[in-house]
Design a protein around this nucleic acid. Sequence first.
DNA 1: ACGGTTACTGTAACCGTTTACATTAAAACC
DNA 2: GGTTTTAATGTAAACGGTTACAGTAACCGT
Lengths: 340, 340
Amino acid sequence: MTRRSSSVTIRDVARQAGVSVATVSRYINRNAPVSAEVADRLHQVMSDLRYVPHAAARHLASRKTRVVGILLRNLHNDFFVPLLNGVEAVVRTKEYNLIVATYHANSRNGLPPPIGPHNTDGLLIFSDGLTDEDLANLSASGFPMVLLYRTCPPSLNIPSITVENVEITRKLVEHLIQVHGKRRILYMRGPIGQEDSDRREAGYRAALEANGIPFDEELILNGEFERDTAYQVLNDFLSNGKQVAFDAIFTGDDDAAVGVLKALHKHGYRIPEDVAVVGFDDLAVAPFLNPALTTVRAPTESVGRIAAERLFALLENQALSEAVVLPTEIVFRRSCGCHT
Amino acid sequence: MTRRSSSVTIRDVARQAGVSVATVSRYINRNAPVSAEVADRLHQVMSDLRYVPHAAARHLASRKTRVVGILLRNLHNDFFVPLLNGVEAVVRTKEYNLIVATYHANSRNGLPPPIGPHNTDGLLIFSDGLTDEDLANLSASGFPMVLLYRTCPPSLNIPSITVENVEITRKLVEHLIQVHGKRRILYMRGPIGQEDSDRREAGYRAALEANGIPFDEELILNGEFERDTAYQVLNDFLSNGKQVAFDAIFTGDDDAAVGVLKALHKHGYRIPEDVAVVGFDDLAVAPFLNPALTTVRAPTESVGRIAAERLFALLENQALSEAVVLPTEIVFRRSCGCHT
DNA sequence: ACGGTTACTGTAACCGTTTACATTAAAACC
DNA sequence: GGTTTTAATGTAAACGGTTACAGTAACCGT
């Protein structure tokens, strides 16, 4: 075979420094003592030769990739910026790399997820692309994972990071009812089966029930937690002949709320006079929307950071069992009718 | 050595199917004919055994990682969502993986970039962390790269994707001057040396000059193209005793414009009556800011998509020389004083 | 002075693939 | 029918590191 590598290998370094490859490797990984003299020489030779260890070779030999992955539904939302930022900050300090991949239930036509044990040391999962069964299989093989915005199926033992949804949503919707006198509150939900979406619906229903308002299926719209989808869906709803009366919208996340505002503006609704709008997440732009958006502050960057930290704890073989639920709080602004 | 691998290897598949590993490899890579009968058997065995090829081993043997990287200054801005989305979409269709890494001039304390030839097949570069010299070295070794928002140094030959900055900025600033009668226009610039920031400043200066307005150093603020930094900087500027008069702000990007709006609101300025504000990028939320932001529509997702496509063209050994400059256009909204 | 650590280094097997080269049998050509 | 292609497969050498094992020399405690 005539393979010719243009790149300088550990053997070149070893030869040039007059030591064995093992010593070079030990120097690189600092996992065994190397004499000061040899260390200096290696340092010099490595920089002279511009030697960079070949990642795949290290991976193959050491059985670790030094890569973690994050599996997302998609990359359509501003929501992902603080999340990725939190994750990336931790990954960087650990001198790991981060693979970002999208994969969702509808995208798997029998395709396996693009990231997993074959190319990462662990996974942050914020995607419905992996079923409970997939998780069970991975978990059984001891593959490190942390679930984001999704609690672990009871039989498994995978750490998860979520935010408090039900109570805060109940409070938020009760605020619409009790303070602003709303009775016909539309819920712009997220993807079917997505836990945040379901829990927020539970809080929404609880609020209705506690206040003697009947639940109306017609007031549930599926905006997929996406700006553009939410716009489309609400636009269709408003364009539809049979007008369903409503006086407020609880949008399950702020990105979708942007789409909701767009559709309402387009159809001439005044916010909050005609329709109150509230969201969830408190994106950075929420205070600057028109009108400023009343929403729930969810610590998205912290979710990313803590999830990554826990993943690394797992990689270091620390056992973690408890699920983390981060607290949330309502931020009252103009769009619900407050701060006139 | 007692290495014990829990995972199933190509040898297991070969043994189980009664063929050699070479045949299995050929079947996997479909780069040489395999009899239909053997193919069926392999298909069956591989799924029975849940065989997944070990990425690092493939990389090592084939000298390709099937990974591309994108090097970013940071992950602080909503701007990165459409960019990453464009890139990721292409990467996914190519069945590659995407490593997202941050690295900027100030973060390199002698550290090499986290991604490069040792762990990727090519790089999208949107970062000042790599100097022209770094680029020259990489380029000399034939490493595929595409520059984002940065034109290639003259001596090199690296494809780049940028957007048209100078002319559109001149038009935008002239709009402020000629239509809205502004004379004291502040420029909230981006990172020093960042090309977009410099070019937009050039357009800004051209507009002033063409309209007989003297350039005033005091009206240049460095917001780093970041929401929070821009807020801080403008807030300090406004809190400062010696009040510098100004009647408009050209913010070099929309993320920073959000920070600018925040600072202006805080100090009681009315927009656009007291101060006109314009931005650049046309982020998804720009129409929903308060007031709706007049800005320049820059096709960020297309930049990501085209950059990725060109990177893959490079990987397939197509030579690309020309720099791509995508057109931009002004979107007039309320914040400049239009659409009263 | 001597057994036991400890610091440092080298040799070579191994990680799980790809692929150059060799081989055989069947198909195609004249 | 003999020669040349072509299809299908196998053998084994890389790819560039890590690390178990072995060994040597200096150091330590008694």
